[in-house]
Each structure stands twice: as C-alpha cells, then as structure tokens.
C-alpha cells in the first residue's frame, strides 16, 4: 500500500530549493499569462520557454513527460478533436464529412485552447513534482494560513490511500459473497450500497476519537504556533515572486488595452 499520495519526487535541484510559495506563484503565473495573453502563440511559447526548461532545471523531465503522456495529452487531444470538429466558427471550410464541416478558424481555436490546457496542467504538474506537500503547508502556515488547513491537506493525503485500500478490500470481500459488480445496470446500481456503507460508516465512527487525540495535543491552542522545520525564503525568491506579479499585471493590462 502506498502510504501517501503525491506526485512529489525528491531531487537536488534549483527548482526544489526554491521557496514553495515562489513555486506556487510561478505555476499560477504561467497559467494566468497563458490564459490572459492577447497573443495567439503565447501558450505555445510558454511550453517551449517556461514549462520544459523548468522541468529540466527541476530534474523531473522524465516524470513530467510520463504525466504528459498519461494525463495531459489524452485530455488535450480529446479537447482538440472535439473542438476542431464541433466549434461552429465561420471561416475557410477545410472539408465536409456528413454534418461535420470544420473550418480553419475552428482548428486554430481548438489548437490554442488545447495548448492552454496543456500549459495549465503542465505547470501544476511540475509544481507538484518539485514541491513536498509538507514544505508547502509549513510555509503557508508560517505566512498566516490557519494551521487547521495544513492538518486537513496533509491528513487527507494520508487517508486517501488507506481509504482506497479499504475500498478494494470491501469490493473483493463483497464479490466473493456474490455481489454483482459486472452485469446489468440495476444490479450494479444495487451493489453500490453494500460497498459504500461499510466504507463510510467505518471511517466516520473514528472521527470522534481522532478529534480527541489531536485536541489532547493542543490542536485548538490559542497560542501562536511554531514549526519544527524552517523553510528558506531568500531574496531571490522574493525577486521571483514580485517579477511574476508584475508580469501578470502587464499581461492583464495588455489584454484589456490590446483587445
């Protein structure tokens, strides 16, 4: 069983060493620019000159390509085909097949749209590959995010694999008792309750004890929290964050004035 769920890959790299908030700003910055920029080729250029170099710099190119093939390209490909075929944009008709008559405009539109989705998902993926969830939450907590949020995020990451393992056990157990998970729709729908019931009730009864356990360790203490690990935040980090904010504002302005 996986003990926790996350994309994170431990490496020694310039990207890994960045402050988590800088990386988050970077990821969001790339997304904003790709969606807000008035220029057609911005998202494509971002992939070449931001996403790929970042994955190289962070030494996660292989993992990134892997995620690209498994998660990003199928979605983007589906989007591209659907939109190229079905977006009813007026323009130069490329071909006609039955009721389909894609135009040059709809293909261009679909291409830009799909690329933007690729940029968005890629930049989040690289952020997740290079940022340990614990570091991110520690840093955000230090900056004023209530400690309860860190608790929720991290404990969810640890509960999900347990829950999935439990779900698999229950599915296997119910199947061996003849529960139907394969045949007709109504039989499968009827199978839902015996599968969901034990899973849900089992985890809900534990809630109270777990609440007591964390209360006993000062979870609701009104004192100012401290943290075990210190997360470095250098001048370089601050520079990166401020320049990204400037870039986002400039892009927004150009969007408003140029379109």
């Amino acid at each position: 069983m996986q003990e926790r769920l996350s994309f994170y890959k431990k490496r020694e790299s310039a990207v890994h060493r960045l402050n988590p908030l800088s990386k988050l700003t970077l990821a969001l910055g790339i997304v904003f620019v790709s969606f807000l920029s008035p220029y057609y080729w911005t998202p494509h250029l971002l992939i070449l000159f931001a996403v790929i170099p970042l994955s190289l710099l962070g030494k996660v190119l292989r993992e990134y390509i892997n995620a690209m093939l498994r998660l990003i390209l199928p979605t983007a490909g589906f989007l591209f085909i659907m939109q190229a075929l079905f977006q009813p944009l007026e323009g130069v008709e490329l071909f006609r097949f039955g009721f389909l008559h894609p135009t040059q405009e709809s293909v261009l539109f679909a291409f830009a749209n799909a690329t933007r989705i690729v940029v968005m998902v890629s930049s989040f993926t690289i952020f997740l590959l290079t940022t340990h969830p614990n570091e991110l939450m520690t840093d955000l907590t230090r900056r004023g995010l209530p400690g309860q949020f860190a608790y929720v995020i991290i404990s969810t990451l640890q509960i999900i694999p347990q829950m999935q393992a439990k779900a698999q056990t229950i599915i296997a157990a119910q199947r061996s008792r003849g529960l139907d998970t394969e045949s007709t729709f109504f039989k499968r729908a009827g199978s839902l309750i015996p599968l969901v019931g034990p899973l849900v009730f089992g985890s809900l009864v534990e809630v109270e004890e777990r609440a007591i356990a964390i209360e006993a360790r000062g979870f609701t203490s009104t004192r100012v929290k401290t943290s075990l690990n210190s997360i470095p935040d250098t001048n370089k980090d601050k520079l990166i964050r401020w320049s990204l904010i400037v870039i986002i504002i400039v892009t927004l302005a150009s969007r408003i004035w140029l379109s």
């Binding site: 309860q148 969810t156 999900i160 599968l195 899973l199 985890s203 809630v207």
Partner: peptide, 19 residues
C-alpha cells in the same frame, strides 16, 4: 470534530467516485 471530519469526507468523495 469538523476539522477531522473534512479529510474523511474528502476521502469519501474520492473513494466513492472511484467505486
């Protein structure tokens, strides 16, 4: 109790979604 319930609820969302 709510803070402890939320992660469980999120896990329920995801686990049932997958079932």
């Amino acid at each position: 109790t709510t803070w402890v319930l939320i992660p469980v609820a999120i896990a329920i969302n995801i686990a049932i979604g997958q079932i």
